[in-house]
């Protein structure tokens, strides 16, 4: 069943909104639902930890609303407790968040249907699952704002709401390890990585990134494993690449949509 919708759509047309809007919204909500289960315990724990380490409710809320980056929020809270100078806290947050520079460079090129204001908002919401889901979407049916923002709305609202629950009822939270919920995010990211297995040099990039990340993790330490492991994988991918046959700017986008089409379609459309 290849409906017209399933073909990549890269040109801005006046009717594209009507045609795809409701389907995009539906798909965005559907794809975000499975990871709500992971975000709720994670977010509740953050709310509880924030209050425990001395933030009041309003400060906790402003943190999550304005930063919206789970790992670096934990780092900030942790370092604030040690009364370090402001610049060193900000530097640590920058180190944890550096991977977003790479996300932004990659996904920004696939936001051809976004207005400048939509882009500015979209980058604010670019968390790990948002990036991974959007890359998958871009490679299959094309990334449109309705999909991006409906997915983002679920994640953002869930994150904030679970923070509030954790902050208010921290002591009542059950240990999420009982149901394996503490480990959903690593499993989810593993599933997403496997979904990219048709990209060029997949195995090589996987091994080099994973190897360098582990090496860094056990020597220099976290969070540098993310950046150094990631960059090592990119260098290998660049070194292994070959010059394109002809110089058509649309070539790569279309080629990827085709290459990744079947595998990723399975991976996400049925999710």
């Amino acid at each position: 069943m290849t409906s017209q919708f399933d073909r990549p759509q890269f040109h801005r047309t006046s009717s594209y909104n009507n045609q795809y809007f409701s389907r995009d919204i539906k798909d965005g909500l559907r794809d975000a639902l499975p990871i709500m289960a992971a975000i709720v315990p994670f977010g509740a724990v953050f709310g509880a930890v924030a209050i425990d380490s001395g933030l009041d409710f309003q400060e906790m809320l402003v943190t999550s609303l304005s930063i919206y980056a789970a790992a670096s929020q934990y780092v900030m809270i942790d370092l604030m407790g040690q009364t370090l100078p402001v610049w060193s806290i900000v530097l640590a947050v920058f180190a944890v968040n550096f991977r977003h520079v790479l996300y932004s460079a990659s996904i920004g090129r696939k936001m051809t249907l976004f207005s400048p204001l939509q882009k500015a908002c979209a980058f604010f919401l670019l968390v790990d699952p948002q990036f991974a889901a959007s890359e998958t979407r871009a490679a299959t049916v094309g990334l449109r704002p309705a999909y991006y923002f409906s997915y983002a709305a679920v994640i953002y609202i869930t994150w904030i709401a679970s923070n509030c629950v954790g902050a208010l009822f921290g002591s009542f939270i059950e240990n999420p390890a009982t149901y394996g919920l503490d480990f959903i995010l690593p499993l989810y990211f593993t599933g997403l990585v496997a979904g990219f297995h048709k990209r060029p040099n997949f195995i090589l990039v996987l091994l080099v990134s994973g190897g360098v990340a582990l090496l860094t993790y056990f020597t220099i330490g976290s969070p540098w494993h993310i950046t150094l492991g990631g960059i090592a994988g990119l260098i290998v991918a660049a070194a292994q690449s070959r010059p394109p046959q002809k110089n058509n700017p649309e070539r790569n986008i279309l080629e990827n949509a085709h290459e990744d089409g079947t595998g990723l379609e399975e991976g996400t459309a049925n999710a």
Partner: peptide
């Protein structure tokens, strides 16, 4: 093109 695989790994 390798960013998702490399960074998420």
């Amino acid at each position: 093109e390798a960013v998702p695989t490399a960074v998420l790994t």
